[in-house]
Design a protein around this nucleic acid. Structure first.
Lengths: 331, 331
DNA sequence: GTGAAAGCGCTAACAA
DNA sequence: TTGTTAGCGCTTTCAC
């Protein structure tokens, strides 16, 4: 293997000079620089990054904790992260945690083991609750904890849910069912808050029985919808707190022989790719997924450069995407 | 920071002994082992993996090259990889290459830079064509190159496509359109080969005009279908070489006011999650995605242990999943 | 602008 | 069974 020593010998300079031409070319005279570069070219030398990282006590790697990598919304977020990470010379280590805290913790401890410089958590939970959190560079995105010490970036979930509910109300709906995610998740709580606020503003009652629990997956949406539609007095519209659940709900309703939106309106949240390809195309809230990723990575980058970001909480804009899955309720 | 030195002092042993208790506990007497473990517990010491990796000249990391991370089929493959990697103590670095060879190359060269020990390529292309390939541990999965030097694991794509085509023929179809992927991709070529074989066996002509090109994405499927349906004599069935394209095709056909499968049959390939949720549910070929991932990782692991795997080419079984998107052609 | 040399934290001969 | 010690390949003072 070619090492920096070989290059230094070949170019007739010291290893320090070789090191400099690689990281601070302007600290080296053009003449020697040329000699070194020639030697590098000639040998096809590639520096041992593992040695460099060891020496600089950096890994140039960050880990992202994602509850479910096959969720289409997250894949877009990840792509945003990867893109800006790459431009800054960072690699991203993917941790598919399935929401399990031990897995989250084990990934997070990679920064203590110097295998990673920081972490982006896409789930509303702090890895290694017990204090350790303070000293690892961490940003929380999408689903966020309330902890003020952690810089975070999220949607105005309550506002978005409120807007969607108001839209449904404006269409004439009075009984709006909800398929929610896990109740621990702040996402669920915030969206539910927006839903209630809209109801209240419209003078409509909040009916606990209209809320069914899911876990954001299509199959859970299917079950939740089935359950809601079996009610004595079923809702005329379904607000699914994720597009995947909405797709599951549409399927369930279709199996029951009902038509969307004629018999029942269904709306989602996220605007994943398939929302557009639903039959009928799904009305939903668009989240700027890639931007979530790139902004989160940007924050982590400044954190890594020593910025003091605690108390930072950024919001990203949502957008209502009206397609054809919601209409007026039947007379 | 606590280092191995600190532990050795605290336990009153040498650093070598500390190192041994961590990696070869049985080479250390119970008494000293206990002392060392106590010191480790007391200090909360965590070994610097970056130093260990540097010293052992391993990274315990592999990179997986995936053309599109938001493709639901790949996310499942990745999950399979991650799972078995984790059990073997490896981390996985995700490289979303968007099919671009420079990105593939730059990721692959992480092995040379000692940032990774090996790579799994999910795309039918060899990174760093120019020879370098021979000396990096690499396994090729899903979409494979023909190069015999590379261990590979794939589906019997031709067989699967043939089976699906035969099914369509058995339903009475005589004009079967195809939306294919990029023609460079071996996936496309193999599946097309199966399609032609089935046609031939049934004594049906092969009509080049019935083949439309896509890139496996939903939007490309939509365009391809539109194009095919605009033919003077359109096909009565569409064999889309990916579920995403099939979903796009169903959408296109729906926009034209046609019914699936009454007016046109549509089938896919992959059996992604949403295939089941289509309207009507999509008839398709199921690929064992997670298994692709775990098997590929398993191969890479043995490669990394020095096994000689060239010429290895494993096949995984497909499964026809008959749902409701294909039926008899209109009279 | 350049070089000598001291680490970085660990592993692995080798010796005892 | 345990300790001594020489690296691993690079970066980074500190002199010159």
């Amino acid at each position: 293997m070619t090492t920096i020593r070989d290059i230094s010998r070949l170019a007739g300079v010291s290893v320090a000079t070789v090191s400099r031409t690689m990281s601070n070319p302007d600290k080296v005279s053009p003449a020697t620089r040329e000699k070194v570069e020639a030697a590098i070219r000639e040998t096809g030398y590639m520096p041992d990054m593992s040695a460099r990282n060891f020496s600089t006590r950096k890994s140039k790697t960050i880990v992202v904790l994602v509850p479910d990598i096959s969720n289409p919304f997250f894949s877009r977020v990840i792509r945003g992260i990867e893109h800006t990470a790459q431009r800054a010379g960072y690699s991203v280590l993917l941790g598919d945690t399935r929401g399990e805290s031990e897995i989250e913790d084990s990934y997070a401890s990679m920064v203590r083991a110097r295998l990673a410089d920081g972490v982006i958590q896409l789930n509303g939970r702090l890895p290694m609750e017990n204090g350790a959190v303070a000293d690892i560079p961490l940003v929380n995105a999408c689903d966020c904890v309330e902890d003020a010490r952690i810089p975070k970036i999220q949607l105005d979930n309550a506002g978005a849910a409120r807007a969607m509910t108001e839209y449904l109300v404006s269409l004439g709906h009075r009984r709006i069912g909800v398929t929610k995610g896990p109740s621990e998740s702040r996402l669920t709580r915030e969206r539910l808050r927006g839903y209630r606020a809209a109801l209240e503003a419209a003078g409509l009652p909040f009916d606990e029985g209209l809320i069914a629990r899911g876990d954001f997956s299509a199959s859970s949406g299917r079950h939740a919808a089935t359950q809601l539609m079996a009610l004595g007095k079923p809702p005329t519209a379904l607000f699914c707190l994720s597009d995947e659940m909405a797709i599951g709900a549409m399927h369930s309703v279709w199996e029951m022989g009902l038509k969307v939106p004629d018999d029942i309106s269904i709306v989602g949240f996220d605007d994943i790719l398939f929302a557009e390809y639903c039959k009928p195309p799904l009305t939903t809230i668009r989240q700027p997924a890639e931007e979530f990723g790139s902004k989160a990575m940007g924050m982590l980058l400044s954190l890594l450069q020593g910025a003091h970001l605690a108390e930072t909480s950024q919001h990203l804009p949502y957008e209502m995407v009206i397609r054809q899955s919601a209409g007026r309720p039947k007379a």
